[in-house]
Each structure stands twice: as C-alpha cells, then as structure tokens.
Computed example of a mutant assay.
Amino acid sequence: MKIFYLGIDVAKAKLDCSLLLDDTGLKRKSKKVTNSQTGFSELLTWLVKQSVKLTDLHVTMEATGSYHEQAAQALHDAGVAVSIVNPVQVKALGAT
C-alpha cells in the first residue's frame, strides 16, 4: 500500500494544494481550488484522477482561523486522514 501526502495552504478564498508523488518529495503535482464545497469536490475528483486512493491519503493543512474547517470536514468525510497544524509551528520549522 502506497501512502500519498497532500499539503494544503489555506486561505479564505482558495486552497493551494501540493501532492507528493514519490518518497523523495521531488515529484509533485499542484492544484488550486476554491475554498468551497465545489472546490472540495473538484479536489477529490482531481486526486482520484491522479490514481490516489482516498483512504491511502494523508492531508496536512494549517489551522487558519475558521477557513480550514469546511475543507478538513469534507476530506475527512471522504475517508481521508487529515492533520491540522499550527501555522506558527510550520513557520518555525521552515526557519530551521
């Protein structure tokens, strides 16, 4: 079983998504969708087209006010493992 990882940068109007295609992190695909039910459906359809089994996907997104909540819920409802991280910790990790 191959696990896929998707990182999502959350904003009020959109989600910037980056899907890792290999273990090195060198191969990836990007997708931008609206931060809405329509966008979540578009993202899930795109992931399936990338041959990603949703139950083998782990999504990490930042906690951005309340803007991440509907996306996290839609992904969870689709069977995706979702981790919500503190953006301050992500920024600190990037600075090291």
Rank of each mutant, 00 (worst) to 15 (best):
A74D: 15
T55E: 15
V80Y: 01
Q70A: 12
Y5T: 12
K27C: 04
L21T: 02
V59F: 07
A95I: 03
G25W: 01
T45V: 14
A63E: 01
L19Q: 06
A71N: 00
S66Q: 12
Y67V: 04
E62S: 13
A13N: 12
M1R: 08
A74Y: 10
K49H: 15
C17Q: 01
V82T: 07
I8P: 13
S51M: 14
D23N: 10
H58Q: 07
L15C: 10
T38R: 09
G65Y: 03
A11F: 00
V80Q: 12
A92S: 13
K53H: 12
G65R: 14
Q37M: 11
S36D: 11
K53I: 15
Q89M: 05
S18N: 08
L19P: 05
L20V: 01
L21Y: 03
K49Y: 02
I8A: 09
S30L: 15
K29C: 08
L6V: 03
V88N: 12
V33K: 10
V85N: 14
I84W: 10
G79I: 09
K91Q: 08
S36Y: 09
V52S: 01
T55A: 14
G79W: 00
G65M: 11
Q70I: 02
L43R: 06
L57W: 02
T34V: 01
K53F: 04
V90Y: 09
K49E: 15
S66F: 10
Q73W: 10
L19D: 07
D77I: 06
L21W: 05
S83K: 07
S66W: 00
C17N: 11
T64M: 08
T38K: 09
T60S: 13
T24I: 04
K27Y: 06
A95G: 00
T34A: 11
Y67I: 04
G7I: 02
L57H: 05
V33R: 03
G79C: 09
A71Q: 02
L21G: 13
S18C: 15
A78Q: 05
D16C: 11
D56R: 15
G65Q: 09
I84E: 08
L15E: 06
L57Q: 14
S30N: 11
T34I: 01
T38M: 11
G7N: 09
L44D: 06
H58N: 11
S66T: 14
T55R: 14
N35Q: 02
D77A: 15
S18P: 02
I8Q: 13
E42W: 00
L57F: 06
D16S: 13
K29H: 10
K31P: 08
G7P: 07
A63S: 14
L26P: 01
S66R: 13
V59Y: 05
Q73C: 07
A13R: 00
A81L: 08
A92E: 09
A92Y: 12
T24C: 06
L44V: 13
I8L: 07
G65D: 04
W46K: 04
V85F: 00
K12F: 01
K53T: 12
C17M: 08
I3S: 13
A11P: 02
L54P: 07
G94L: 04
Y67M: 03
D56M: 08
L43Q: 11
K53P: 07
G79K: 10
V59M: 01
S30P: 01
K31A: 07
V88Y: 12
N35H: 10
Q50C: 12
S51N: 14
Q50P: 03
V48P: 03
K31T: 13
L57K: 07
Q89T: 07
